[in-house]
Amino acid sequence: MHELSIASAVVDNILEFVAERSIKRVIAVRLAVGELSHVEEEQLRFCYMAITQETLIRDSALEIDRIPAVVRCHHCDYSGRPKYWEDALSAAPVPTLQCPNCGGAVEPVEGTDCAIKSVRFVSDEPVETVPGSSDFASDPS
């Protein structure tokens, strides 16, 4: 279950971030998960919850943005969404590395990474923020 490794990395990074600052509470952690990174959202949430349980960030929400896959074909110069295998036996249609245009092999160019995008927290000291970075759901209900 690589979701466990990834959730651990998220938590380690955020705890380090918290330790370096005067932070009272982490409200939310936002991830960008590429479609081709094959990180399963449900499992990732479960692991995150399990790992944060005993930590300072136990009440933080995990928000996940899906980054769509983009592929490029060197045979016909196609660039865009991948071809999907609709009736494979996976839960959802499977992105393939077959060119939707010519059937040749394509290279993935986007949607392979899995990253921490941003963190939202409460602090009692002024913290330098990046302007226009507030892309969290305004009301996490």
Binding site: L31, V119, R120
Partner: peptide, 18 residues
Amino acid sequence: ASPDEIYDIELEHSLLEA
């Protein structure tokens, strides 16, 4: 917390990069 104490910080930290 009052809203002015809430901060968003961009990290852009890849989890696969290390």
